[in-house]
């Protein structure tokens, strides 16, 4: 089972570090990372394996939202299936 963590906002020092640290704390394994600048916004998409996480996925999603709030960024963790079902036939 995998999830997509999306980070959108103003580029600052330490975004990747803080998000990775949170991933490690819930035991989510980072599989892939892409980042780019879209219309002056920093956008990072992280694919993580959530099969061995140490909490409920919902708790993890909430934790990332809170982290986003603290850092002034929009951070969402969403199950991979939602993207697959919408964009793959």
């Amino acid at each position: 089972m995998r999830a997509v963590i999306s980070v959108i906002g103003k580029d600052t020092v330490g975004i990747l570090a803080k998000v990775s640290e949170k991933c490690a704390s819930v035991n989510a394994n980072i599989v892939d990372v892409t980042q780019t600048i879209l219309q002056d916004m920093f956008v990072m998409i992280m694919m993580v394996d959530i099969s061995a996480i140490n909490c409920e996925f919902a708790e993890m999603a909430t934790a990332f939202e809170q982290l986003g709030g603290e850092m002034g960024l929009s951070i969402h963790a969403m199950h991979e299936d939602i993207f697959n079902s919408m964009h793959r036939i």
Partner: peptide
């Protein structure tokens, strides 16, 4: 992996 554009599209639709 699903591409960035698709992921952003889904997130924008919901948010």
């Amino acid at each position: 992996m699903i591409n960035l554009h698709d992921i952003m599209e889904t997130i924008t639709m919901i948010q």
